[in-house]
Simulated scan of single mutants.
Amino acid sequence: MNEQLDTEIMSYLMAIFNDETLCDEWLSTSKKPLGGISPLEILKKTNGKAKVLEMIVRIETGDFS
């Protein structure tokens, strides 16, 4: 997993996926809710962390749309 990735995001993802490979795959795959951009790319933008955390919360609550 990317060592520079925010620890809060890493913690949430590990709680969901419980597998670093799955976390890496999720982070590097484009997402429709992010405009077809991967979470790793969004994290480089202003308010990117908030957008990624919003997606994680949606996953945690069962909203996979």
Rank of each mutant, 00 (worst) to 15 (best):
F64W: 04
F17M: 15
K32W: 00
L13N: 11
M14W: 08
T21K: 15
S65F: 01
I42G: 04
G35P: 03
S38T: 12
D63I: 06
E54L: 15
P33D: 00
S11W: 04
I56G: 10
E54K: 12
K45D: 01
V52R: 02
D63H: 00
L13S: 11
G48R: 06
K49R: 13
I37P: 01
T46P: 07
A15D: 14
F17E: 15
V52T: 04
R58S: 12
N18S: 13
T29G: 04
L43T: 07
K44V: 11
S65A: 13
S65K: 07
F64H: 12
E3D: 14
R58T: 02
D63M: 01
L5V: 14
G48S: 08
D63A: 07
L53P: 03
T61E: 02
L22Y: 06
D24L: 07
F17R: 15
K45C: 05
I56C: 07
W26S: 06
E54A: 15
A50H: 07
K49A: 09
Y12M: 10
S28N: 15
I56L: 13
E60C: 11
M1S: 13
A15S: 13
S30K: 14
K45L: 12
E54G: 14
L5E: 11
D19E: 12
G62A: 09
D63W: 00
W26T: 07
A15G: 08
V57P: 00
M10S: 14
S65R: 05
D19A: 09
K31Y: 00
L43S: 06
K45Q: 06
L34P: 04
G36I: 06
C23S: 11
I16F: 08
D19I: 09
S30G: 13
Q4A: 12
L22H: 07
D6F: 09
P39M: 05
G36V: 10
F17S: 14
S28I: 06
M14N: 08
V57Q: 02
